[in-house]
């Protein structure tokens, strides 16, 4: 059942990215181009919709001991603010601003976005893998 839930959640997430047009980097860059004179606020509406629904979900989760299909709910959010968090977010923001793609829309575009999306995903996976390996080595 957990696996079916995961698949359905993935399908809904992908549909949301298509419906909102966040799958289109040109739309995302239109939001990030705040000072270009023709600002596109679509991304803000997407965030408002998603955050409002998810805020209700966190309230419902707070009233539960465990998820419906077993396992554990996530623990309380960490409050650690460090250079890794801010530096990582800055590096991510730089890459996001260069192309207009972040991990969700990139993967959602795998079958419909063509060659450019493949190049981006390959590079992104390489970046993630490289950091994972560095982390594994660092922790042992």
């Amino acid at each position: 059942m957990r696996k079916l839930v995961a698949l359905v959640a993935g399908l809904i997430f992908g549909l949301g990215l298509v419906v909102s047009d966040m799958i289109n980097p040109a739309r995302v860059l239109g939001f990030l181009d705040l000072f270009g004179g023709a600002w596109d606020p679509t991304l803000a509406f997407v965030m408002i919709g998603a955050v409002l629904v998810m805020a209700i979900a966190w309230l419902l989760a707070g009233a539960r001991r465990q998820p419906v299909f077993g396992g554990d709910l996530p623990g309380p959010a960490s409050s650690l603010i460090d250079a890794r968090l801010i530096g990582g977010a800055a590096v991510f923001g730089f890459g996001w601003g260069l192309v207009g793609l972040c991990p969700g829309p990139a993967l959602a575009g795998l079958l419909v976005g063509g060659f450019s999306v493949w190049v981006f995903i390959a590079a992104m996976i390489a970046g993630m893998g490289a950091l994972n390996i560095t982390n594994t080595k660092g922790s042992t």
């Binding site: 839930v5 949301g16 047009d21 679509t42 997407v46 419906v68």
Partner: peptide, 30 residues
């Protein structure tokens, strides 16, 4: 890009779908 009321409504609707997906994953699977 061009932006009008339709983009805002579809943005909100798509955002709600994304929120529902995340809510499902949290409440059902943790």
């Amino acid at each position: 890009m061009n932006f009008d009321l339709t983009n805002a409504l579809f943005g909100l609707g798509g955002g709600i779908l994304i929120g529902l997906s995340a809510a499902l994953l949290l409440l059902a699977n943790g």
